[in-house]
Amino acid sequence: MPAVDKLLLEEALQDSPQTRSLLSVFEEDAGTLTDYTNQLLQAMQRVYGAQNEMCLATQQLSKQLLAYEKQNFALGKGDEEVISTLHYFSKVVDELNVLHTELAKQLADTMVLPIIQFREKDLTEVSTLKDLFGLASNEHDLSMAKYSRLSKKKENEKVKTEVVKEVAAARRKQHLSSLQYYCALNALQYRKRVAMMEPLLGFAHGQRRKFRCTSSLETSEIQPSESFQRGWITVSWTC
């Protein structure tokens, strides 16, 4: 089937088999998009969860480094250098934790939230309008069936008038619901392009900003005492 840009609104009233066939293609596309969006959201929430876990992990690491000096080691001679070194690294970890926390917030706001809004607003709107369109179509079919069963020989003009009014009202309702439904399906074809790109841009921007901030941290070097260097190693840290 050749690519189709949109459902023609002028064909909504005709409700021809060709129009219904084309409508089914748009409905299938919307269903596929809904399934994909749900899976994409799960993947993005996993990324956010991992980043949030990194925040909690670095907080715990910083606290644990500071807890060294509170330990009652049986052999604690020369621990002053170790304590000062761990204090320094605790500060470095705290700085990194700030970056992880900022990134987690940015991922929540610019990656996860947009895809949730797209699902809850656009996809839910299409799903709701589909249900309303189905109800209106069923009402129209029932009213047409009632009209077709009217007696041709002993026709009651009052009953006929009521049924004709019912058919007209059902047809207006179906036409209105089909117009709204077609518009939503057409709009979805354009909105999904932005919906797919916006969260990825948010992810990329957040990661780029994080690494820029990380690389901007000044290079620092710890100078432990001479005895500490002889006994262990010289510790240096480069951000």
Rank of each mutant, 00 (worst) to 15 (best):
L99H: 03
T238W: 00
L150G: 08
A43V: 04
Q71W: 03
Y147D: 09
L96Y: 11
V47C: 06
M196S: 05
K165A: 12
H100Q: 11
F211I: 06
S178R: 13
V92K: 14
P2C: 05
E125K: 12
Q51R: 11
E10A: 11
A108V: 08
S220I: 15
G78F: 05
V93A: 01
D141R: 15
R191M: 00
K77S: 13
R149A: 13
L41V: 09
Q180G: 03
G49I: 01
A57K: 10
I116F: 05
L7E: 01
A168P: 08
V159F: 00
A195V: 02
S177K: 14
H87F: 11
P224I: 00
C239Y: 02
N97R: 10
E125V: 03
V98I: 10
E198T: 15
S16V: 03
L40W: 11
A108P: 04
E10G: 04
L150I: 09
M197Q: 15
M1F: 07
K91D: 04
V235K: 05
C183E: 14
F203W: 02
G206M: 02
L56E: 14
S62D: 13
L185F: 01
L61R: 08
P224H: 08
A204L: 11
Y36M: 04
C213W: 09
V93I: 05
K153E: 09
L56V: 14
K130Q: 14
S216M: 04
M111H: 05
D131P: 00
H87D: 13
A184H: 02
G31K: 01
R208D: 09
Y147M: 14
Q117Y: 08
L33G: 02
N52K: 12
Q229K: 11
E27D: 05
E198Q: 12
M111Q: 09
I116P: 05
E28V: 01
A74R: 15
Q106E: 13
F26I: 04
E155A: 09
A168K: 14
F228Q: 09
S137F: 03
Y88R: 15
V82Q: 00
N186F: 04
K152C: 05
